[in-house]
């Protein structure tokens, strides 16, 4: 299963970005391979509607769950309609967030 996390940098030591739609990258963690892939967020500089575009982008890249910071109303609605599982994250290193997800200690929204 693939899980998307908005992040500041494209390396494994990065932390979750506190902006969901406008983060520079998304880290896609693949639990089958236990590895990260980093994708540039095409909507990070969008004039409007970044959250909605971000959700479309994440879905198109196969994510079935997301770990997110505080969400804006547009992104919140899109994510809920998308049917993918949403976990509440905090501004922590992504490796730690993935460990928390594995141990079931992240809250589902």
């Amino acid at each position: 299963m693939k899980i998307a996390i908005p992040v500041e940098n494209n390396d494994e030591n990065t932390s979750m970005d506190n902006r969901f739609g406008r983060s520079l990258y998304y880290a896609i963690y693949d639990s089958d391979k236990d590895s990260f892939e980093f994708l540039q967020n095409p909507a990070s500089q969008a004039r409007g509607g970044a959250g909605v575009q971000a959700v479309e982008f994440i879905i198109n890249n196969g994510a079935k769950a997301v770990i997110v910071p505080q969400l804006g109303p547009n992104a919140d609605r899109a994510l809920k309609a998308s049917g993918i599982t949403i976990f509440q994250g905090t501004k922590e290193p992504i490796k730690k967030l993935v460990e928390m997800w594995k141990s079931g200690s992240l809250n589902e929204l």
Partner: peptide
């Protein structure tokens, strides 16, 4: 529709198209 909307007022989700009226 969603691909071509200049204002990103439409969002294609797996089984529905969302309309963001205010955008």
């Amino acid at each position: 529709c969603s691909e071509n909307c200049a204002f990103h007022a439409l969002g294609k989700m797996p089984d529905t198209i969302l309309v963001y009226e205010k955008m």
